[in-house]
Each structure stands twice: as C-alpha cells, then as structure tokens.
C-alpha cells in the first residue's frame, strides 16, 4: 500500500480516537494523565458532529456530547468526525475544533498572550500551539498504545460498547490499571516472565465490570 492509500484507509483511527477521548472524558470527569505531559483535563463542549456514510448528526449546546441524542447517534453506528474540545493543563487553557479524519485543529483559542512586540508575540503563539500539539499528541500516543494492544479487543472496546449502550462502568479505575500493562509506543516490548507481586491481572480477564 502506498502512502496516500495508508493515509486514506486509516482515517477511521482518528474517529476512534475521538470516541475514546469522549468515553474517557465522561468516565473520569475530564481527568487525563498522558505519559510525558502529566495531568490535564479534556472536555468535549460546544459542538459535535457524528457521521455514518451520508447520515450526519450535528449537535450544538453547552455539552452536546452529554446529550442523549449524541449517545443515540453512537448507538445507530455513527462516529464523531468533528468536536469542539477544551484542554486545560495547569493554568493553560486551550479550546479548538478537532477534525478527526485529518487529525487537525482549527479555531484554536490559546491562553492570553503577554508579549507585546510582534516577533515576541509570534514566538509565544508558536510556543503555545506547539505545547497544545505536544499534549494532544501524547493523548493520541496513549490511545494508540491501547488501540494496538490486545487489551483493546479484550477490555477497552467492550467497555466503550457498554458505555454506548448506556451501562455504568462499575470499576473505571480498572481501565487505568490496564494502561500499566500496555507497551508504550516506540519501545520494544519487555520480555514477560512472572508478573511482580501485586501487579494487575493480564488483559482479557474481564477486569472491567459494568454494573
């Protein structure tokens, strides 16, 4: 497959990333902890567009992702292609429209700038844009590590399906514990022998429960 084909045929991964962000944001009340960038908050707010082939649901409001219509659209098989996202890390607060198919950000609102000189303003703007991209990239890496692991099919996808059906995840922390067993991206898998005492059970054991 050439590069153009790979780009076109893997666009669905961006939509799955947005579903995962939405799911985790609801489950953990916006709290994320991406490796390398520390704790942050991520919320879907303002607008969300869900699509299945030619059918489209476009929802607006303070928290449209929390509306019953948004979950109903998921149950019908629609996936989000675009959503307004708010990300907060420490005192830095960003908002932007995330386009899942292109993995692009538009209408980015960056924290208030303090520099006055034109050149300095440019460097400050780029610093903030790159900071946001690094943070969002870390979240994507966190998602991909899960998506490419066996834990996706055994635990994560079933949990998301349960959430889509409107069931309550009884033990959300099991999802967090699951992360520790997933190989981060860009590193060779460690040789597995006997797990150290106290480590969480292996993936696929039904560690996540719905009530």
């Amino acid at each position: 497959m050439d590069l153009v084909d790979l780009i076109e045929k893997r666009r669905f991964v961006g939509r799955e990333f947005l579903v995962w962000l939405w799911f985790e944001s609801e489950l953990f009340e916006g709290r994320f902890e991406a490796p390398g960038v520390g704790p942050c908050e991520v919320w879907l707010e303002g607008q969300i567009t869900l699509v299945q082939e030619k059918e489209q649901s476009r929802l607006k409001g303070a928290t449209p992702a929390a509306a019953p219509e948004a979950h109903e659209a998921l149950r019908q098989g629609k996936l989000p292609t675009q959503a307004k996202v708010r990300v907060t890390r420490g005192e830095l607060d960003y908002a932007f429209v995330f386009n899942a198919d292109a993995l692009s950000l538009s209408g980015v609102k960056i924290p208030a700038q303090v520099k006055e000189e034109s050149d300095e303003q440019f460097y400050e703007r780029m610093f903030l844009v790159e900071d946001l991209e690094e943070l969002f990239g870390a979240l994507y890496a966190d998602f991909l590590a899960l998506r490419l692991s066996t834990a996706w099919e055994s635990d994560v996808a079933p949990a998301i399906r349960a959430w889509v059906r409107g069931e309550v995840i009884a033990d959300p922390e099991a999802l967090r514990r699951l992360r520790k067993r997933v190989t981060p991206l860009g590193r060779a898998p460690r040789a597995q022998t006997t797990p150290p005492p106290g480590e969480a059970p292996a993936a696929g054991t039904g560690a996540l429960r719905v009530a």
Binding site: L6, I7, F12, A100, A102, L103, Y140, L185, G186, R187
Partner: peptide, 13 residues
C-alpha cells in the same frame, strides 16, 4: 498530517 502520519511520527516499533 493524518491519523497514519501522526502514528508514524510517534516512532512506532
């Protein structure tokens, strides 16, 4: 940029 190119930039094993 795309889901594929961003993944590749992450330095996948």
């Amino acid at each position: 940029e795309s889901p594929y190119t961003a993944a590749r930039e992450l330095g996948l094993s």
